[in-house]
């Protein structure tokens, strides 16, 4: 069973964006939101959820419509689908997680302009069947998520000594003279952390390629 899953096309489509085709650290897409929402782990996770849901559904819907969308107005159609999904996600957040929604402010709304969504729709969904497209959307959402969550964790831990709002730095460390890193609260820190992750990942990928 596992072997069959592993050799399936959907599995490959799902796993590629998690590692060697990661949308953030390899393709360098969706950087703006990665900088903005990763000050805390919580906002990062919520953003990832919203993003993954929108991406999965938009990929699925657009893929099933791909044969009836006229070529010359496809961007408009894509935008309508994505915008509707984003509005739904935004309203859900406002309804059920109002605090987080306020922290995320415009960034949920701005998922519309996230390059990953349009990119996957254009590059994948319009050329593949809905089954694969859904897996591709899920994979890319989670690939984006991995980076965001790691960056969010690093920035929250470094900048405030907390994770998910819970203090994890032992008091003893502060007593020894440790101070939270103010830089982590600024957006450039996310830039630097993402840059380092991209560097690390590319080094690993190129090593893997050399090895194989």
């Amino acid at each position: 069973m596992w072997r069959r899953i592993k050799s399936s096309q959907a599995f490959a489509v799902f796993t590629a964006p998690l590692s060697i085709k990661n949308p953030v650290s390899v393709l360098v897409l969706g950087i703006c939101s990665s900088l903005a929402v990763t000050i805390q782990l919580k906002t990062a996770v919520v953003m990832v959820l919203a993003m993954t849901v929108v991406l999965t559904f938009s990929n699925g819907i657009l893929s099933s419509l791909r044969k009836i969308i006229p070529k010359n107005i496809r961007i408009i159609v894509e935008l309508i689908v994505i915008a509707s999904l984003v509005i739904v996600a935004d309203q859900c957040l406002k309804a059920f997680m109002f605090d987080v929604s306020k922290q995320l402010s415009v960034f949920v709304g701005l998922i519309i302009t996230n390059c990953i969504i349009m990119g996957r729709a254009e590059a994948f969904a319009l050329a593949n069947n809905p089954w694969l497209s859904v897996w591709d959307g899920l994979g890319n959402g989670l690939g984006y998520g991995i980076i965001l969550i790691v960056v969010g964790a690093i920035r929250e831990l470094g900048g405030a000594g907390t994770l998910w709002g819970i203090s994890v730095m032992p008091e003893a460390v502060y007593d020894m003279g440790y101070v939270n890193m103010g830089l982590m609260v600024y957006a450039p820190a996310a830039f630097i952390v993402i840059g380092l992750m991209a560097w690390l990942q590319r080094t690993i990928i190129s090593d893997m390629r050399k090895g194989s």
């Binding site: 101070v179 890193m181 103010g182 830089l183 982590m184 600024y186």
Partner: peptide, 10 residues
């Protein structure tokens, strides 16, 4: 600059 922005108190 790193120290300056990270630990402004110092």
């Amino acid at each position: 600059a790193f120290v300056y922005f990270s630990y402004p108190a110092y």
